[in-house]
Simulated assay, not measured.
Amino acid sequence: MGGLGAPEIILIIIAILILFGGRKIPELMKGLGKGMKEFKDAQNGESNNTTNTSATEEKPKA
């Protein structure tokens, strides 16, 4: 008792598809994975002090 079987998991997946649609699910999973990584890093005492160097813009050539 209390375990999830195949029929229950299938119903849950169908409900998620109906609620969010097929296009929104990859974005949700990406956010969930990012949140889990940040949580694990925080548990290990690691800090996220990296800087994004790709965001720097080059000056256009005249």
Results as ranks from 00 to 15, higher is better:
residue 32 L to W: 10
residue 54 S to A: 11
residue 56 T to P: 03
residue 12 I to T: 09
residue 62 A to R: 13
residue 37 K to W: 15
residue 27 E to I: 07
residue 12 I to L: 13
residue 40 K to D: 05
residue 42 A to D: 05
residue 18 I to Y: 04
residue 56 T to W: 03
residue 52 N to K: 10
residue 47 S to G: 11
residue 19 L to T: 03
residue 5 G to Y: 01
residue 26 P to Y: 02
residue 49 N to S: 09
residue 41 D to P: 03
residue 51 T to A: 12
residue 21 G to K: 00
residue 49 N to A: 05
residue 25 I to N: 00
residue 24 K to E: 02
residue 40 K to Y: 06
residue 58 E to K: 10
residue 6 A to H: 06
residue 5 G to S: 03
residue 18 I to P: 00
residue 13 I to A: 14
residue 43 Q to M: 15
residue 47 S to H: 13
residue 52 N to S: 11
residue 46 E to G: 02
residue 34 K to Q: 14
residue 9 I to N: 02
residue 34 K to F: 08
residue 7 P to W: 01
residue 39 F to G: 05
residue 19 L to I: 08
residue 14 I to E: 14
residue 16 I to W: 04
residue 22 G to D: 04
residue 11 L to A: 15
residue 14 I to A: 15
residue 7 P to N: 05
residue 10 I to F: 04
residue 46 E to C: 02
residue 47 S to K: 15
residue 20 F to I: 00
residue 19 L to E: 07
residue 53 T to N: 12
residue 52 N to I: 11
residue 43 Q to Y: 07
residue 10 I to A: 14
residue 56 T to A: 09
residue 1 M to Q: 02
residue 40 K to F: 12
residue 29 M to K: 08
residue 5 G to W: 00
residue 27 E to Y: 06
residue 19 L to P: 01
residue 22 G to K: 05
residue 7 P to C: 03
residue 38 E to Q: 15
residue 23 R to T: 11
residue 49 N to H: 06
residue 26 P to K: 01
residue 7 P to L: 06
residue 11 L to N: 12
residue 10 I to C: 03
residue 56 T to H: 05
residue 43 Q to S: 12
residue 9 I to M: 06
residue 10 I to P: 00
residue 57 E to A: 13
residue 42 A to W: 06
residue 1 M to C: 02
residue 3 G to V: 07
residue 53 T to I: 07
residue 3 G to A: 13
residue 22 G to I: 08
residue 23 R to D: 11
residue 44 N to D: 12
residue 29 M to G: 09
residue 33 G to H: 11
residue 19 L to D: 05
residue 15 A to M: 12
residue 20 F to T: 03
residue 62 A to K: 11
residue 46 E to S: 07
residue 37 K to G: 13
residue 44 N to P: 01
residue 61 K to L: 15
residue 48 N to L: 10
residue 54 S to G: 12
residue 29 M to F: 10
residue 7 P to M: 08
residue 61 K to D: 15
residue 49 N to R: 04
residue 34 K to I: 07
residue 9 I to Y: 01
residue 16 I to Q: 08
residue 44 N to A: 13
residue 38 E to Y: 13
residue 18 I to N: 06
residue 44 N to G: 08
residue 23 R to L: 12
residue 17 L to W: 03
residue 6 A to Q: 06
residue 15 A to F: 03
residue 1 M to G: 01
residue 58 E to I: 05
residue 45 G to P: 02
residue 51 T to G: 13
residue 9 I to K: 03
residue 35 G to P: 00
residue 55 A to N: 09
residue 38 E to H: 11
residue 11 L to D: 12
residue 47 S to L: 14
residue 51 T to R: 13
residue 1 M to V: 00
residue 61 K to F: 14
residue 16 I to S: 10
residue 50 T to Y: 14
residue 2 G to H: 03
residue 9 I to H: 01
residue 6 A to M: 04
residue 55 A to P: 01
residue 57 E to W: 08
residue 23 R to K: 14
residue 24 K to H: 02
residue 59 K to W: 14
residue 28 L to R: 02
residue 13 I to T: 09
residue 61 K to M: 13
residue 31 G to T: 04
residue 20 F to H: 07
residue 62 A to G: 12
residue 17 L to Y: 05
residue 55 A to Y: 07
residue 31 G to W: 02
residue 1 M to P: 00
residue 36 M to H: 11
residue 40 K to E: 04
residue 13 I to S: 06
residue 33 G to S: 14
residue 20 F to M: 04
residue 57 E to H: 10
residue 21 G to T: 02
residue 4 L to F: 04
